[in-house]
Design a protein around this nucleic acid. Structure first.
Lengths: 142, 142
DNA sequence: TGAACATATGAGCATCTCTTCAGACGAGCA
DNA sequence: TGCTCGTCTGAAGAGATGCTCATATGTTCA
């Protein structure tokens, strides 16, 4: 049954989140809404992408990742030195990046060495840097 | 003057943020640190990129942007319907995206129509979506 | 001209996030 | 074997963020 826009509005207050395609939801171009809703990635894909972009959304983390992009493999104190951050902050950052498998580490005695380990993040950063006129001199991975 | 690692450590507690190249800062591979620090983008470029990635770091915002990627130009209630979000939340999202010039709007009577207006964001999203096996069917911009 | 429509905006609240500080832990050294 | 080194982790505090709700605003309609 076709519901008027006015009836839709009353049925679905603007501040209520709603399911795509919910016919009590107000819309203008039903066909386009359906097409777009169908084309959107799944909730979990959206969540994963948002999380991945979130990793790049902090200046401190972005510097650490860019440092590894440029420097290949580096230890924590060298990353901290290159980025102008404290070792503690860098360590926290690396912990988060490790948890998301963006970096991987190897131990050499007391030293821990880190390198970028995510081609997706690498490509996104390459594209982003190139777009702001800052092509990365990424080292070939060993 | 060459400072030993031990003296460097005493001079620069690990929890103090420090300037790149600061010779009181502890480091292992001075040459590499200098090379990497020199290759890093400026502070403001890093800040801008982090901010841009931040715009993509929220699932709600990511859905809105992806909806516009797929749907071209859409009004607020259609975006909300396609995304399964409230109109109020979408409106807030669009305000933020407008402020960052990621979207632009045009008025048609009571209706406001939005479209993606940032090629950088468009490219990053295209790359990200393609990487998760979800190629965007981006419409050619008018 | 008042009401309805479509959208925008602000405040409040709950939650999240980042940095610092302090301490823990494993490896190496004298 | 105790100390130092390099790194890691947790807690606390300050600040940021997103959604809902309520209200405001401009446009259209009867």
């Amino acid at each position: 049954m076709s519901i008027s826009s006015d009836e839709q509005r009353k049925a679905a207050p603007a501040s209520r989140p709603h399911a795509p395609g919910d016919c009590a939801v107000r819309m203008v171009d039903r066909e386009k809404v359906d097409m777009v809703a169908a084309a959107l990635p799944d909730e979990d894909v959206i969540g994963d992408l948002a999380q991945m972009f979130g990793l790049l959304a902090d200046p401190g983390r972005l510097k650490v990742i860019t440092a590894l992009l440029e420097g290949g493999e580096m230890c924590v104190c060298d990353i901290a030195a290159a980025c102008g951050s404290s070792e503690s902050a860098v360590s926290h950052t690396l912990r988060l990046l490790r948890a998301h498998r963006v970096v991987r580490s190897r131990r050499g005695g007391r030293m821990a060495y880190y390198r970028l380990d995510d081609s997706h993040v690498r490509m996104l950063l390459d594209l982003a840097l190139a777009h702001v006129g800052h092509p990365a001199q990424a080292q070939a991975s060993a």
